[in-house]
Amino acid sequence: MRCVDVTRELSAPTGDRQSSALAQHLAACPQCAAWAARDMKLNQLWDATRPVEPSTEVWNEVWTEISARLDRPDVLPFREAPTIRPGRRILMITLGVAQAAAILLAVFFFTRAPGGPQPDATVHQPVRPVDGAPPSSVAQSDSDPLDIDPDGSLVVLRIEAPGKVEKTEVALNDNSGRVDSGFEMLNFLESAAKQ
């Protein structure tokens, strides 16, 4: 085990490393042992300075304020009303009128489109193949997606034939209890794609 692996494992444990190998390295490497001792001190410092939680009275006051804000019908609870400078008021009115006109225009064109309104037209557009030609066959309908809920496993869809999919789940043991292997794989691949 290299020193860099030791400090990395101590900083962000994965559980992948054998604890005996870690202990063995720490026993033999004064530098890493000193690092580990300081890290333990940091943890102790963190514990010694944990914030004191507010009293019930304080929380009651906070809740009263939240509740009052939620009751205000004139103000969106989650957005501060911006202060409008006089000079910007005209511009904002212009923008508002223009936006209303845009909405009217868009609704007009939208309802005049052949076949009438198609709310999810963009979503369900056929997949554009590489050279732009339409797909010759579609094996599965978009409207009937295969529902997967891996719950810690990896889902594999084995393609037996076009339209025939066999779903299997492969359990991935996670020693640390902190790292979801499927999630880790996704992040690894995402990172690999960006390199």
């Binding site: 193949p129 797909p135 094996a139 599965q140 529902d147 997967i148 990896l154 889902v155 999630f183 996704l186």
Partner: peptide, 23 residues
């Protein structure tokens, strides 16, 4: 070459990987 070999639609939780396996 623009001819579909297979196509599958899936509803998956975010942050989860799934595999399609074709022999």
């Amino acid at each position: 070459n623009s001819v579909s070999q297979f196509s599958t639609a899936v509803a998956t939780p975010p942050n989860q990987l799934f595999f399609c396996d074709q022999k």
